[in-house]
C-alpha cells in the first residue's frame, strides 16, 4: 500500500533530516514509528502524503508515485487520512461542518449524504451529541476523536497518525487510543508515529525505530519488543519502558 524507498531529505544543504529511508506498509498492516524527538519520524510520515517534499528516493501510495510532478496531489491526499498532534480542527466551523467540508468540496458529495456520513462517524467515536458545537468547546481528547472522524469521512485507503496523543492530558489518551485500536482491528492500513508502546504492543504488526534521520530498526512487533538488534533501540526502549 505504502512503499518508501531510499528517501533522502535535506532542510538545507547542511542538514539532512532523512537518510536513505526504506520501508513499506502493506494493506491492512499497522506500522508504528518511534524514536527520540528530532529523529525525523514526523517528517517521514508527512512525506507520505507530500505535506513535506523530499529530494531523493521514491514514495508510492497504492501504485501512485507521490513525488511524480504529474501526480494529482489533492486527489491522492484525499485518499490518505491524516491525524495531527495538535488536532488541527478548523476552529470557525462546527464539528459537523469540520467533517463535511472536505467531503463536499473535495469529493463532491452532496450535503445530506455528507451529514449522514459525518453523523455515523461521530456516533462511532462517541461524539454524536457534540455535532453542533465548535472545536474550542470540546476537550483535547474529544477534539482528536473528531479529527480522526474527519479523516475517516473521506473513506481513506490508509491513515497516517502524527503523534496523535502527545498533546493530550494523560486521562484523555486512552479514549483516543481506543478509537485507534478499533480502527486497526477493522483492518485499516495505518502508519502511526507514537511513543505509546502499549498501543504498539496491542495492535502493531511492525515497529520502526528511527534515530537521526535513519531507520535503525524495522522489525515485527514481537522481535522488536523481545530483542531489539540495535543498541540505540535498546537504550530508547529501556528509557521509555522503565516507568
Amino acid at each position: 500500500m505504502i512503499e518508501i524507498s531510499h528517501v533522502d531529505k535535506w532542510y538545507s544543504s547542511a542538514f539532512q533530516v532523512l537518510k536513505d529511508c526504506t520501508t513499506s506498509v502493506a494493506k491492512g498492516e499497522v506500522v508504528v514509528v518511534c524514536g527520540p524527538s528530532g529523529s525525523g519520524k514526523s517528517t517521514l510520515i508527512k512525506c507520505v502524503n507530500a505535506l513535506e517534499p523530499f529530494q531523493k528516493g521514491d514514495i508510492t501510495v497504492d501504485g501512485t508515485k507521490v513525488n511524480d510532478p504529474k501526480t494529482n496531489l489533492p486527489k491522492l491526499r484525499a485518499r490518505v487520512g491524516m491525524v495531527f498532534q495538535h488536532f488541527e480542527l478548523f476552529p470557525h466551523l462546527k464539528i459537523i461542518d469540520n467533517l463535511c467540508l472536505a467531503q463536499e468540496k473535495v469529493l463532491g458529495r452532496g450535503h445530506d449524504k455528507s451529514v449522514t456520513k459525518a453523523m455515523m462517524l461521530l456516533d462511532r467515536v462517541g461524539l454524536k451529541e457534540h455535532a453542533q458545537k465548535f472545536p474550542a468547546q470540546l476537550s483535547g481528547g474529544q477534539q482528536q476523536r473528531v479529527a480522526i472522524a474527519r479523516a475517516l469521512a473521506m473513506d481513506p485507503i490508509a491513515m497516517l497518525f502524527d503523534e496523535p496523543t502527545s498533546a493530550l492530558d494523560p486521562e484523555m489518551i486512552s479514549e483516543v487510543l481506543d478509537v485507534m485500536v478499533d480502527l486497526a482491528r477493522e483492518g485499516m492500513t495505518m502508519m502511526v508515529v507514537t511513543h505509546e508502546m502499549g498501543f504498539a504492543r496491542k495492535v502493531a504488526n511492525r515497529v520502526i525505530f528511527m534515530d537521526r534521520g535513519e531507520i535503525v530498526e524495522d522489525a515485527p512487533k514481537d522481535d522488536f519488543f523481545g530483542k531489539p538488534r540495535s543498541d540505540r533501540a535498546q537504550k530508547f526502549l529501556s528509557k521509555i519502558l522503565s516507568h
Binding site: P74, F84, H86, E88, L89, F90, K105
Partner: peptide, 26 residues
Amino acid sequence: PRGQKQAATALGLTTVQGYRYVLLPM
C-alpha cells in the same frame, strides 16, 4: 498555526480552497 494549512492540504483541499474555507475565515 502551521498545522491548519497542513490539515486543509491533507484533506485534499487545493490551495485556493484551503485559503477560502480554512485560512481566510480565521
